[in-house]
């Protein structure tokens, strides 16, 4: 159940691990924006973006199998794209004996290419940045403190809640609960409600623990090294590539 959502950090060291998190977050976002701007027919542009992503995955220390399994986790999200050529209108193209919408095929390609590249970018960030660094990076990017605190608390308690839900699931299954229809979902729903109360009461206890250590309403700001110009230069190289490719493609196509 929780497998796909486990944090994907690679416990190795690489030049990418050492880049300041705020620079990596910005770079990842802008790279995905560049890819999204690229016109779908500029296959060569996607190919160059793919080379960038693959090289960075290799530098980050992903083994091919590892990267593939992680890419597979996004399949459900793009599965819909596969149906587009069947249901879209417009000119038809014959492919494998099927008559498919030409525009639909391009649309399908568009979604798949862009999400594979976007997923690659996010895998590189997730693989080289511990959660605590991500939270710090958000802080340095001047995200409102309340958002940074919420993200920090969310990560701190996510695994605990997931594990607790998993145990509740197991406890239900162990007593023969195997829901197949919506109206059998009541135990799950009540469990979700109970989970919420438990999580909330835990929040109250955490708050007590914070008070006990002198908390007075604002989270102390933790110091850390700001991103160096080199970090920024490195992080912004992939987005410069993807955005330039998008612009070139828009002009020449």
């Amino acid at each position: 159940m929780a497998g796909a959502h486990r944090h994907l950090l690679l416990h190795t060291d690489s030049p990418l691990h050492r880049i300041a998190p705020e620079a990596k977050i910005v770079g990842t976002f802008l790279f995905a924006v560049g890819v999204a701007l690229t016109p779908r027919r500029a296959v060569w542009a996607f190919a160059i973006d793919a080379v960038v992503v693959l090289s960075l995955l290799a530098i980050a220390g992903y083994r091919p199998r590892q990267a593939l399994t992680r890419f597979a986790a996004v399949l459900p999200f793009v599965a819909f794209a596969v149906f587009i050529p069947f249901i879209a209108g417009g000119d038809k193209t014959d492919l494998f004996g099927l008559s498919l919408s030409t525009e639909g095929l391009w649309a399908s390609w568009n979604v798949i290419a862009k999400s594979v590249l976007g997923t690659g970018a996010s895998l590189i960030l997730a693989g080289t940045t511990p959660i605590s660094e991500v939270v710090r990076g958000l802080g340095r990017l001047r995200m409102p403190p309340i958002v940074v605190s919420i993200v920090a608390f969310m990560f701190r308690y996510l695994d605990l809640i997931v594990e607790e839900m998993g145990r509740m699931r197991v406890a239900m299954t162990a007593r023969g609960h195997d829901p197949r229809w919506l109206w059998q979902a009541k135990p799950i729903a009540s469990a979700a409600g109970a989970m919420f109360v438990r999580s909330y009461e835990r929040g109250e206890r955490v708050h007590s623990a914070m008070l006990a250590r002198g908390f007075s309403g604002t989270m102390p700001q933790m110091e850390h090294e700001p991103a160096s110009p080199t970090d920024w230069a490195r992080s912004l190289t992939p987005p410069v590539v993807s955005i330039s490719l998008a612009l070139v493609a828009l002009i020449i196509l």
Binding site: I146, I150, V151, M154, R156, L158, I161, Y200, G203
Partner: peptide, 14 residues
């Protein structure tokens, strides 16, 4: 604030 964070974790898990 901790409660909102834990609620975020709850929604994430949900």
């Amino acid at each position: 604030v901790p409660l909102a964070g834990i609620a975020a974790a709850f929604i994430f898990a949900a």
